[in-house]
Nucleic acid binder design. Structure first.
Length: 205
DNA sequence: TCTAGGATCGGCT
DNA sequence: GCCGATCCTAGAT
């Protein structure tokens, strides 16, 4: 396993994000999210995401056309990051999708450390179980060292520190499960929408 | 200004 | 599986 990854020829372009959000969410599974900092480089393979469908989606931060200082980047052009603080202490990372002004995005919920593993371990702590390193939105941000300072970052910009890489890995047809989203019980009908995409991996072996 | 609630996490049973 | 921590954010007053 390489300790770093030359991603210069495989960075996903803006056209990928500028499509229907559900489709982007589904196709994010298997892609590598790479973040370079002065400490080094970490790459996570995405295994769980959720689509948020803008003003008509009661679970979305942009529901009803809400436009606040916090969610401004969610209204911006596709291919940018939307980072926010939840419960006052955890960060959540989203990728803005569809057309600019649609207020749609995909929440990144989980991933598997693919390179920069030592850095992930250092950030997450020595006692965290291997399978628990990045199995939640807040943990994913901690592993990648993402916070509000990365809000609005363009993943498609040349030389961007945060970028999405397609190395050809993708889940098999039958390995993707759709469920309702997590933690949005109070969102009425939208709470039942099947917008969570999960790459169900083999756990044995 | 004040208040209620939140796209969570980790420790404990 | 359950539950409390913890404080920012948005909307109401």
């Amino acid at each position: 396993m390489p300790s770093s990854f030359d991603s210069s020829h495989a960075v996903v372009g803006r056209a990928f994000y500028q499509r229907p959000t559900e489709r982007v969410a589904r196709e994010l599974l298997g892609k590598l999210l790479v973040h370079s900092t002065e400490d080094g480089e970490v790459g996570l393979r995405l295994t769980e995401v959720e689509a948020y469908l803008g003003p008509t989606d009661r679970a979305s931060h942009t529901w009803g056309g809400r436009r606040t200082a916090r969610n401004l980047s969610m209204w911006g052009p596709p291919g940018h990051a939307y980072l926010y603080l939840i419960y006052g202490l955890h960060h959540c990372a989203n990728l803005v999708t569809a057309e600019e002004g649609s207020g749609e995005a995909v929440l990144l919920r989980a991933g598997l450390p693919t390179f920069g593993h030592q850095l992930v371990r250092a950030r997450r702590g020595p006692r965290v179980a291997e399978t628990r390193l990045c199995d939640g939105p807040g943990k994913l941000c901690q592993a990648l060292a993402l916070d509000r300072s990365h809000d609005g970052l363009d993943l498609c910009a040349l030389g961007a520190s945060l970028r999405l890489v397609d190395d050809g890995v993708r889940p098999a047809e039958g390995a993707v499960v759709r469920t309702a989203r997590i933690g949005v019980e109070s969102a009425g009908d939208a709470a039942r929408w099947q917008l969570r995409f999960l790459w169900q991996m083999e756990t044995a072996g």
